[in-house]
Every structure is written in C-alpha cells, then in structure tokens.
C-alpha cells in the first residue's frame, strides 16, 4: 500500500513570532523554520504503518520555496522513501495546496493520504478536507488512532463530546491530531541514508494548477500585551474593586 504524506515548512514551534512593523505579516527573516508538528505526526504514523507491514512505500510531498527540501529530507530521514517537491515562491493558500495535492494524488494513486490537521502558521484546518472533496475520497479528520483493516481504514476522531470512530473505504484522507503518536527523532544512520533517497522537483505549472491568490491578508497584528496588575491594600478594597470596577460580583 502506498501512503502519501504532505508536510509543510513553518516557523519552528519554539520561536516567538514577531509581526512585521508594517503589519503586512509575520517576520520570517532569520527565523528558524521546521516541519509543522502535525505533519511530523503524519510522517510518524506512515512510518509506523510501514513498520507494521501495512504500508509498502511512503511518498512525502511539500509545496513551497526551495528551502522546503529541508523538511522533505527530514521526513526521508524519519523513514519516508521518496520525496516530491512542488517548487513555488508564491504564497500558496489552502485551496491551491489541496488542488496541487490532488494532482499528486492523481499521479501517484496512493491508498492513504495522511496530512496534519492544520499548520501552526495559518491555522486554517482545511487543506485535508478540501483534498478529500476534490479527490472524491472519504476523510477521517483529527485522528487519534488509525487502524488499516483490509481495504478499510478505521479512524478514531477527537471530537468535542469524546471519541468518534469512522470506517472509511480506501483510498482515504486522514488528518492527524496531537495525540495520534509521539514522533521519533531521526537517527544518524537514517540522516545519512536520506541523502541517497530520490527527491523529484516539479512546479504548479507542470501539474497544471493555477496558484493565484484568492484571499488577501489585510492586516496582521500581535495580540494585545497584558496590562500590569495593581496591588490592593486589603480584602475590603479587593471586594470593592471587584464589585464596582470589574463588576464581577
């Protein structure tokens, strides 16, 4: 069974992001980039499926500038077999990403596509769902357990009220939640081997997808900074302030 995993290059989750002075976006200059944590979980799940003998080949795909190859290499070092880089310097939004992934799905014909449920930079949480719709596949989103059973996959989903398990016919799209697994880190031998694994580069034009921007970002602002607190002299003053100023009691 072939598994396709999509990974995105985002700002490292440890980095404290700063908004650009002109409010046009987030400052990316000299900022450490890394693989989106949910995508890491997706790669790990695919590697575990391969270790169980369920998956036979793991293809990892990423969309973005040349530097995205770092994230593809990371995925290869974690155990993926082959990489596809869709190179573009343009801003790629969810729908365009889904269309590009659809084109890769048509070409590669994977049985299972695993994506992160969302990327930590734009928090859209829609690429997986859009891809499932475009490709006409079933979707199991927010997965906390993925069990492949013959030509079906059972996906346990984390929903508000608890856990919901859905059975999907393969091929299907699964998006990962935080508790699906704990990703390993790449071993030194695998890092060395990753270099020798194939990585193909293509472009949106080659795949026949128009990535023109449909949404424009008007303004990006940092969250309001917390105001300094005050000290009260005694309980009476506290109660008075809660009653008359904050009006909470």
């Amino acid at each position: 069974m072939k598994v396709l995993v999509a990974v995105k290059r985002v700002i490292d989750y440890n980095v404290k992001v700063r908004v650009k002075p002109d409010n046009s976006g987030v400052d990316l200059a000299n900022v450490k980039m890394a693989m989106n944590p949910f995508c890491e979980i997706a790669v790990e799940e695919a590697v575990r499926l391969k270790e169980k003998g369920v998956a036979t080949e793991i293809v990892v795909v990423s969309i973005g500038p040349k530097a995205c190859q770092e994230q593809i290499r990371t995925a290869l070092a974690l155990g993926a077999d082959r990489g596809i880089h869709i190179e573009t310097d343009a801003e790629v939004q969810s729908l365009e990403a889904a269309k590009l992934l659809k084109a890769v799905v048509d070409k590669e014909e994977p049985k299972l596509v695993i994506l992160g449920k969302q990327s930590i930079d734009t928090d859209n949480n829609q690429t997986g769902q859009m891809l499932a719709a475009l490709a006409g596949m079933g979707q199991g989103t927010f997965a906390s357990e993925v069990v492949v059973d013959g030509d079906k996959v059972n996906v346990t989903r984390e929903v508000d009220g608890g856990l919901m398990t859905v059975a999907l016919n393969l091929p299907a799209v699964v998006t990962t939640d935080l508790r699906l697994n704990e990703p390993r880190y790449a071993s030194l031998p695998n890092i060395m081997k990753a270099k020798k694994k194939p990585l193909d580069t293509t472009t949106p034009a080659d795949l026949g997808v128009d990535v023109a921007v449909r949404l424009t970002t008007l303004k990006v602002e940092a969250p309001a900074t917390r105001q300094a607190g005050i000290k009260v002299a005694d309980v009476a003053e506290l109660v008075d302030k809660l009653k008359n100023e904050a009006k909470v009691i």
């Binding site: 890394a34 190859q69 770092e70 880190y185 790449a186 890092i191 990753a194």
Partner: peptide
C-alpha cells in the same frame, strides 16, 4: 549543510 542541520536537530531533541 543539510545533514549537519538534521544531525544538530536530532541531537538537540535527544
């Protein structure tokens, strides 16, 4: 280089 960065990332996590 790419390998060195991957190695550094992995070791940092270790």
């Amino acid at each position: 280089d790419e390998d060195q960065q991957l190695i550094v990332d992995s070791l940092k996590r270790l």
